[in-house]
């Protein structure tokens, strides 16, 4: 039994190492302009991001990402609550929401560029608007799927409207809200890159595209590598946060499954 576990763990950890080694060795003497040696890419990675452009580009990109995401999260939960609790509002905004959600988020970037230019405001606004919908829709679904029994109990205890929302509805909807937030975060990351690639001169996305257009392939690879790592890390961090906040829910699910 132990042996199988050990073997699986070894295979799991070994494959990525093997792949990276294969990349390193096979590209060692590469003269193909598109696929420079991994050694060159890593050297450029270190020169570019640690720390020459760290403050001017990496921090700017990440700042926009988190500001836009924070706005989207707050507005998404707020509007979602209003939409879920007031039927009139729901009927009025439902078709509009579905239509706006159908638009590819990146297609909103050119509109924001034409409205407010190429500045930071444009990038934060595009990220916030695009990331708003997943959270909002998940909040509406989460609140509307709270069981009637729970609401009846809240009524029996004569909880006020405020208490019902803050102490019953929102906690019960958190698992769904967090799923929505996770999708929002991924959308925010995509729109962050897109808003930088469309005619901006700052940010990781802009530098990566610029490097591609000027055939500095090693720089482009370094940018792709950094974006990949950021995408992965942001997701992992959010996963940890979700695990902490939802530990009661994960625990109760495990209990239910064991029973």
């Amino acid at each position: 039994m132990m042996n199988v576990k050990m073997r699986n763990w070894l295979i799991g950890a070994g494959t990525p190492v093997l792949l990276l080694t294969a990349w390193w060795l096979s590209s060692e003497n590469s003269t193909d302009p598109f696929f420079p040696p991994l050694r060159t890419i890593l050297v450029r990675f270190q020169e570019l991001w640690l720390f020459e452009h760290f403050q001017s580009d990496v921090l700017v990109s990440l700042g926009n990402l988190f500001l836009g995401f924070a706005i989207a999260a707050a507005a998404g939960v707020g509007i979602g609550c209003a939409t879920a609790l007031v039927p009139t509002v729901r009927w009025m905004v439902d078709p509009l929401i579905h239509f706006l959600r159908g638009i590819p988020p990146v297609a909103l970037v050119p509109i924001f560029i034409s409205l407010i230019g190429f500045g930071t405001e444009m990038r934060v606004a595009s990220i916030a608007l695009a990331a708003l919908f997943p959270t909002m829709i998940a909040t509406v679904d989460g609140i509307r799927s709270v069981s009637n029994d729970l609401m009846d109990v809240a009524r029996v205890y004569r909880l006020s409207r405020r208490e019902r929302l803050l102490n019953v509805l929102l906690p019960a909807a958190t698992p769904q809200i967090f799923s929505g937030l996770q999708v929002s975060l991924q959308v925010a990351f995509i729109v962050m890159i897109a808003s930088e690639m469309l005619g901006s001169s700052q940010g990781i996305g802009a530098m990566t595209l610029l490097a591609q257009q000027s055939f500095m392939t090693a720089d482009m690879w370094a940018g792709i590598l950094l974006l990949g790592v950021i995408g992965f890390l942001v997701n992992v961090l959010f996963g940890l946060l979700k695990h902490r906040v939802l530990s009661w829910y994960i625990g109760s699910r495990r209990m239910a499954r064991a029973a």
Binding site: N8, G14, L19, A211, I224, G231, N235
Partner: peptide, 21 residues
């Protein structure tokens, strides 16, 4: 098990990242 780590790393990476390539 062999593909787990690779898939988990690539999953949150959107296609726009490799668009320049």
């Amino acid at each position: 098990y062999a593909t787990l780590a690779v898939l988990e790393f690539l999953k949150p990476v959107p296609p726009i990242v490799i668009l320049p390539l």
